[in-house]
Design a protein around this nucleic acid. Structure first.
Lengths: 114, 114
DNA sequence: TTTGACCTTGCCATCGATGTCAGGCCCTAA
DNA sequence: TTAGGGCCTGACATCGATGGCAAGGTCAAA
């Protein structure tokens, strides 16, 4: 299928589909006229990418973990180093949450001192 | 005092002091030669700005609330709309925290399904 | 053949605190 | 007079997913 159809079927703009390809997340063959040509699996792949982006992963991390992903609501197969990567991401998220909560506490503290 | 001294005394780069001025957070008189000239109060103001930035406020919000701030560890005097602004910021932070925690939950969920 | 829908690449913009650099002025000590 | 340090403005870069535009190629239907 062409990029417009993939876009329609996934709800992801063609611009982004090209971006995901440039980031190494999504493969496309080329038709003789240069048009990108996607197979059915691409629909699933795009949904996986969106799910992982929605879970706060960057395209860089997704590029590393995508080969280990199955299913539309992603599950991870065992791949070397995958565990470490994802636990590192979890830890980074926890750190960001802690930062925000510290900030929130500081702001609330300013507010509560009359 | 000149910008270099204010920078040394606050630990904030001259570049940032100029930026805070451009954002309307920090006043400076000008010497006849065009150099910025700060008074003693500027040291306190810069520390307030840093404290509020550290609490996660943007320069835009700080510009609005700074006139209501007293002390090196900021306290807020009563100013009209101040309460609304800060509670809005608190709510925005809570929303960001919730987002992050949702993302974290999604990622952890992917991980826990073997 | 023309129209119109689709595709291509490449570039610019966003947001915001911050760094860095270039080109040039000011002032003081040697 | 020169060296050197401080100051000035203005501009560009950062990060990353995303939007948008322009110029141009492709193809099918009318």
């Amino acid at each position: 299928m062409l990029i417009g159809e993939l876009s329609r079927r996934t709800g992801v703009s063609a611009r982004l589909l090209r971006y995901y390809e440039a980031q190494g997340l999504l493969d496309a063959r080329r038709d003789p006229n240069g048009y990108r040509s996607y197979d059915e699996d691409s629909v699933v792949t795009v949904r996986q990418i969106r799910a992982l982006l929605g879970a706060g992963l960057s395209t860089e991390v997704i590029r590393e973990v995508l080969p280990c992903v199955r299913g539309e609501r992603p599950e991870f197969e065992w791949c070397a180093e995958l565990w470490d990567i994802l636990n590192g991401e979890l830890a980074a998220m926890d750190a960001r949450i802690d930062d925000l909560q510290r900030s929130r506490g500081a702001l609330a503290g300013f507010l509560s001192r009359p």
